[in-house]
Amino acid sequence: MSLSLWIGMVIAALGTYLMRLLPLLWMQKRLKRSDPNGAVDALPKWLVILGPMMIAAVLGVSLVPRTPDIAGWLATIIGLGVTLVVWRRTRSLGWPVVAGVATFGAVVILARVVL
C-alpha cells in the first residue's frame, strides 16, 4: 500500500472506532445527569426498541446459507428448528448452537446425497 492508502485506511479505522466510542460517551453523560438508580429508564424509548431490532436484523442477514440451494435452505430451516428445541430444553447459549450447527451439517450432507 502506498502512503496515501495507509492514511486512508487509518482514517477509515479511526472513523469506525469513533462511531463505536462517541455514542457511548454521549450516553454516559446522559446517564450521569439522570437518577443513578434509573439508568435503564434514562435510555430513550426509540433506542430501547432499536437494540433488539438490530439483533433481529443481524439474524435476518445471517440466515442466508453460504450456498443458497435447496439443501442449504432445508438445512437452515431444520437447523433453526433443532436450535430452538434444544434452547427450550436447556435455556443455555452453547448447546443450542452446537446442536444447530451439527444438524445443519448433517442435513446439508444428506440432502446433497439424496437430491
Binding site: 439474524l59 450456498t67 438445512a75
Partner: peptide, 21 residues
C-alpha cells in the same frame, strides 16, 4: 464443506438471543 457449515453458528446464536424477546 467446513466453510459452509460453520457460519450457521451465527444464526443459531442470534436466534437464541432474540427468542426471549
Amino acid at each position: 464443506l467446513l466453510g459452509e457449515v460453520m457460519p450457521f453458528a451465527l444464526p443459531a446464536l442470534f436466534v437464541v438471543l432474540i427468542v426471549p424477546r
